[in-house]
Amino acid sequence: MKRAVEKKGVNIALIVALVALPIIALFASLTLGRYEISLGSAFSILTSRILPIEPTWTEIEETVVFQIRLPRVLMAMLAGAGLSIAGASFQGLFQNPLVSPHILGVAAGAGFGAALGILIGGPAAIIQLFAFAFGITAIFGAYMISRTRMGSSLLMLVLAGMIIGAFFTALISLVKYVADPEEQLPTIVFWLMGSMAGASYKDLLWGAPPIFIGSSILLLLRWRINVLSLSEEEAQSLGINVQWLRWIVIIASTMITAAVVSLCGIVGWIGLVIPHVGRMLVGPNHKVLLPACVSIGASYLLLVDNVARAATAAEIPISILTALIGAPFFVYLLRRTGGKWA
């Protein structure tokens, strides 16, 4: 009995930590950058929008916090949370901890959409719209390929996703090949490597809703994902409509991934690694794991983006950093767990 109480105590501490982590990360990140802003004024500037506080800060500070840093910080957190929750859901759905939200070719599709948008010289809005639309197209293609009379099996779906991914990757190469090497090609290359630079409220205004909606659906379904992670027959015998539930999860995750790619390019490793960190902290139960992933993912990508923007004078593409950190960490996980992921 005493042990149970103790365990609960630890759990509460963990919950508090997971709630506090992204909030602390948010305020700390607002102070980072070439223009120095103290934690106190960052906090006051933010709260002044809700509470009437006499300004003790300069107008420049307010502009830096509100117009430059906050949208970028929010975008990083949104993307990190979204990719992590989509990754955890996909790993549950595919009963495979090596799956990332990009497995069904969504990222390749969205990447092609963006490259195409850049090629035709469209404005940012067109690029984002293309990215989102082609991300959705990719998943639709995977669905059509995997569809059989009996519904689609997971194996068919993964294979279809690989095919779609390869197809769109080839199309991306084609776009790069025909793009103007002076102007368009570098833009495409940098865009595909992912970056939060240039984040604005306008981006968030249309990019955040799909991420919010997708994440909310996954959070609502989070306990059912446990059942979905059993074999198909077991899940069915527990009264679950597996085909239907599976597609709700896929569509919700796709909305998130496509929106993230359209906002900040292809950011790898987050959706793969963060769910593992979550499982190490709170266990495999998706009811707890998914909210934990939101917290850890948001904080982690924010941290990485801080390095990307503030570590050197030049901006470092974010996917380089996530891979450089993610790959060794994955090696550590692999060695530690012997591939059992427990």
């Binding site: 379904l221 059942v227 992921w341």
Partner: peptide
């Protein structure tokens, strides 16, 4: 029964309640 994820016995048994629960409920 094979599960990729190391659910606890209680979590596994709790999944037996799935048919009684609405789509969005835990």
């Amino acid at each position: 029964h094979g599960s990729t994820f190391p659910y606890s016995v209680l979590e596994i048994v709790l999944m037996g309640r799935a048919p009684h629960l609405g789509l969005f409920s835990s």
